[in-house]
Write a protein that binds this DNA or RNA. Structure first.
Lengths: 225, 225
DNA sequence: AAATAAATGTGATTTACATCACAAGAAAAG
DNA sequence: CTTTTCTTGTGATGTAAATCACATTTATTT
């Protein structure tokens, strides 16, 4: 697909720091690829050759653990997907899979490096994002290991509502097994807790469609476990 | 303390990319501070105003979790301590405490930013380290949540032996409570597992002094749980 | 539309740890 | 050197959540 990065409506915060000149140079060195639900965008263990950037859709980042997969996080558009794995290691340390139909822009790594060399504002923004996501991953890990399932599921529901879908009603295109892998619980436990939340009138579930009825209760459960 | 960064024997991989000129500029903008065992180097919740770099000693990075502290990791010299917390947020998102007597170099953040602007090799190295540590934190989180205590303790002992002390005998200046917070277990469980490892002839413990007798067993336990 | 596969719901059972409770050692403070 | 505080060891008890085992519902394929 022929690109014109200058006109791209989905520029990252970092790319917005680039000059017209630099964007013109970027255009021939990146490709946009569409993925269907369930498609693998990045596969753990393969060589990482490009920086991936999510323009549209929704994806999950996941790692093969010693016993089962762990879903590290759900990522929404306007975020880079493979920065640490592209820069930090030649081999991808995690997989990325489309949850909804998605559009990903793959940027040639040496071109990306050139941008870093040329434009300090760009670099600064990228570093900021790297740092933020590292801090976030520390915090997430603490919650994962210390909170119990009810609290973690409440967190996830709040995250979906507040950050990802920005709405009290949303459709989660992931199985309960995925949710389990996201909060380090078995799918049975997820099922039970979701049923409990429903029964208590905190959420309303119709298939994959979720409506949050009582956000305050969720916040309380998130805090108190 | 008056600095001469050019002559510094503890330069980071990144700082080694700096020119004499740049090092000269760096010198008046950083201070080296000594810390005794138990001293707080960075305190979660306070403003972060400097980049911290560990020259000598040993420190732990820890976060206050919802129920108890989590020791994120033990850091050995020639590593930055506060990059994500300094760049990613105005407020420190974690604490750093000296485990052994330590020397930390505090670098003024605007000077550090200048280096990033001036020297792309420096920047590249810093970014590499950021990415690596993010990947590492993903991996650690997976292990933390999926392995059981025996496996996690084996990991820690192997990490001490292979990476931190680079010796089969070492002195861990941390309590079993700390070890518990490092592997997400109670201090009682740590005590029990250590006793078990001792009984099985895998390690020899005399107070805080540990000798690894059977590394292969540890590796096996690390893998199989 | 029928057949097959995938995802969920729910009870019964098991388990790895936490927590509690207290004893005994080791360090630090007086 | 003695007292107090911190750290460790070890049993008994409790518990959140995994696992097992099916039943049932919802998708997908043919």
């Amino acid at each position: 697909m022929k690109n014109n990065c200058s006109l791209c409506d989905y520029k990252s915060a970092a790319a917005q720091k680039l000059t017209q000149e630099e964007l013109k140079h970027l255009a021939p060195n990146c490709v946009t690829v569409k993925f269907k639900k369930g498609d693998t965008i990045i596969r753990q263990g393969t060589y990482s050759t490009n920086v991936a950037y999510l323009k549209k859709g929704l994806v999950k980042i996941h790692i093969d653990g010693p016993y089962h997969v762990q879903v590290v996080r759900i990522v929404k558009p306007r975020n880079y997907l493979g920065l640490p794995t592209t820069f930090g290691d030649k081999i991808n340390q995690y997989s990325v899979t489309a949850i909804d139909e998605s559009e990903v822009c793959f940027i040639d790594i040496s071109t990306f490096r050139q941008m870093l060399q040329l434009n300090p504002d760009f670099t600064n923004q990228i570093m900021l994002e790297l740092c933020k996501s590292e801090l976030e991953s520390y915090q997430k890990c603490v919650n994962r290991t210390q909170k119990q399932i009810r609290g973690k599921l409440a967190d996830v529901l709040l995250d979906f509502s507040d950050n990802i879908f920005k709405s009290d009603t949303f459709t989660i295109n992931v199985t309960q097994e995925d949710l389990g892998n996201l909060v380090d619980a078995s799918r049975e436990s997820v099922s039970r807790v979701m049923a409990e939340f429903s029964k208590d009138g905190i959420i309303e579930v119709k298939g994959k469609h979720v409506k949050i009825l009582d956000k305050d209760s969720l916040k309380l459960i998130s805090k108190k476990g």
